[in-house]
Amino acid sequence: MIVGVVADPGFSTRLAQILTDRLPELLAACPVDRPGEIEVESVARPLPPATDGSPALDEWFDVLHHRFDLVMVVSEMPRRLASRAVVAEIFRDRMCVFYTPSFGVLGTARRLLRTVADALPRLVGADRSEPTPTGTRWTTDADGVERLVSTSPLGRVRLVAGMVRGNRPWRLIPALSGAFGAASAASAFGVFYASIWQMAASMSVTRLTLVTLAVLVAISTWLIVPNGLWERRNFRSTRADRVLYNSATLGTVVAGAVCMYGLLLLAVMLAAVVVVPDDYLAEQLGTPTTLATYVKLAWLAASLGIAAGAVGSTASDRTEILRATYGRREVERRQAADREKDAET
């Protein structure tokens, strides 16, 4: 029996490799007679969605079932059944699709393996030996399609968090190198000017936090609006899908902005400790210098740097910013699939 593990390029490929390594063990645990040896083959292949954004299961099955006896698809696409997140879906008794965003952020490989162990008996006609993962249940629609859906109140939150994880927000940082350089230059004023020191020392943690939130909103808006990351009605028809995808985009951009802000804060903190002697700082402020003094100084300087330098600067790679959205990567998967189809013909 040949089992194919097929995955979208990206984060899903990493999970698919883990599944490929463990699949023989999981198959051996299914109490059913299988003539011959089990061969597991891993394939990275773009799996484009249908035009409405839903998984194109018929198309995927037509392309894959000729090569394998069983097909295990690890997809980064989000899948919903009404308001419930779909974790896995069995199609035509030979293909099972696992939707990685539904696994959330932490323990994704563990959740995937548990779900595979629960789905395999349904695929091979064996008695179930594993309990259904907590917070999920199997449903069967009128066409006989079996789906494992989330029943947890946090299922939708986990789905959005998983989409943010799939977007890999840290990839925004290289694309924002120009913004980071501008913010660093602007933050230098906070390190060298005594008026900024005095202002930082007099500000409360609450006020500094509000300033941070304001600059994060500013840079997130600067990334989303000019780059057209917000999906509108003409791109995705249903309001629920737009809310889902835009929530993931917002979470990705905010996470990327927080990463850049954190790096800038550490850089400014190091510069302040190295450049500004503590006795001179204490003399200017009229109070003893502590670590908290340097933290507040760096905190305000980094916030001013983001507001004065980063917002409005030019991103070095707009393509990487666009790839922070699921809509853009859907278009890229369709284009890659078309190229593969043309190459095969």
Rank of each mutant, 00 (worst) to 15 (best):
M1V: 12
I2S: 13
V3S: 07
V6N: 06
S12E: 15
T20V: 04
E25K: 06
D33A: 10
S42G: 06
V73D: 07
V74Y: 05
L81G: 05
D93S: 15
D93N: 12
F98W: 02
P101M: 10
G104R: 02
L113G: 03
R114P: 03
R114Q: 13
D118G: 01
R122C: 04
R122V: 01
R128S: 14
S129N: 06
S129A: 11
P131N: 08
T132Q: 09
T139H: 14
D141S: 04
T151M: 04
V157I: 14
V160T: 10
R171E: 15
R171F: 15
I173A: 15
S177T: 15
A179H: 06
F180C: 00
S184K: 03
A185K: 02
A194R: 07
S195R: 04
A200T: 00
A200M: 06
A200Q: 01
R207Q: 06
T209D: 04
L210A: 06
V211D: 09
W222H: 07
I224E: 08
V225N: 08
N227Y: 15
G228F: 11
L229W: 13
N246M: 07
S247G: 12
S247I: 10
V254I: 15
V258E: 01
L264M: 09
V268D: 00
L270H: 04
A272R: 03
A272T: 10
V274G: 03
V275W: 10
D279R: 09
E283Q: 12
K296E: 00
L300F: 01
G305F: 00
G309Q: 00
T314K: 10
T319S: 08
R329G: 08
Q335G: 05
E344C: 06
